[in-house]
């Protein structure tokens, strides 16, 4: 997913629940519909929280990458 054009990147490493979801919901409002937000977290809960947030808020997770305890989410603003 490294070739995806990212319009905004959020470094959420070290943050615990509920901050990753709160920050990502603020971040998505800073980009236009159709643009992509990349969020990087270390909170394992975000693996289930981000898809749940996306479904409820009406946004789309294009891809999720895992490695070294770091999670990368590519989220397209659709809502």
């Amino acid at each position: 997913m490294s070739n995806t054009k990212v319009d905004l990147e959020l470094d959420l490493k070290g943050l615990a629940c509920p901050m990753p979801v709160v920050k990502v919901s603020k971040g998505i409002k800073e980009i236009e519909v159709g643009q992509v937000l990349k969020a990087v977290t270390t909170d394992k809960g975000s693996l289930t929280d981000f898809p749940a947030w996306a479904e409820t808020s009406g946004n789309e997770i294009l891809d999720t990458q895992e490695g070294d305890g770091v999670f990368e989410f590519y989220i397209k603003r659709t809502g």
Binding site: V22, S25, T56, S57, G79
Partner: peptide, 12 residues
Amino acid sequence: MIIATGASAMGL
């Protein structure tokens, strides 16, 4: 407060 802030982030 975690539920409240989380729910607000989810658009509720």
